[in-house]
């Protein structure tokens, strides 16, 4: 029962991303070509409202469903890992048109060749984990 709510959130998330076309390779291509406001509108409005929500949560000291204080783990300080890692991610995102959420959602829409992309993404994560200490962060 505790996990069921996460299943429902996942379904909600999957439906939104398909209906918004944010899972579409074409929409990502169009975004990077600056030929449509669509993706910028989605990300922009999500971030704007997200800011407002998180600010209100902190302001009102809202407790989580389990009664704990709301706390978002801040990301470590740094520059190199974010700019290099981010760029590598961006190259893959624009090539395959799928980031780590849409990969699974697209699998659900019946695109089974996405399993190859998911397997390669797991491998990429594994290789990062192995090389982690040798990379600049």
């Amino acid at each position: 029962m505790k996990l069921l709510k996460f299943f429902l959130v996942g379904i909600f998330f999957g439906i939104i991303l398909v209906k918004s076309e944010a899972v579409s390779w074409y929409r990502i291509f169009e975004m990077f070509k600056f030929q449509s406001f669509h993706m910028y509108g989605i990300i922009g409005s999500a971030v704007f409202l997200g800011m407002l929500f998180l600010w209100l949560m902190k302001k009102t000291n809202l407790k989580s469903i389990d009664g704990d204080a709301i706390h978002l783990q801040p990301k470590d300080r740094g520059f190199v890992r974010y700019i290099i890692g981010g760029s590598i991610f961006g190259l893959g995102w624009a090539l395959g048109g799928a980031c780590p959420g849409p990969m699974y959602i697209l699998l659900g829409t019946g695109v089974f060749s996405m399993l190859i992309v998911i397997a390669a993404a797991v491998l990429g994560t594994f290789v990062y984990g192995v090389l982690k200490d040798k990379l600049p962060h």
């Binding site: 470590d76 890992r81 981010g86 961006g90 893959g92 980031c99 959420g101 390669a120 993404a121 990429g124």
Partner: peptide, 23 residues
């Protein structure tokens, strides 16, 4: 193409510590 795309996403996202949803 599919393997390189997936690999770059998987490697890059962990290196950067997050993806579209997290960052």
């Amino acid at each position: 193409i599919l393997i390189v795309a997936g690999f770059l996403v998987g490697f890059g996202t962990r290196y950067a510590g997050g993806c579209t949803s997290g960052h």
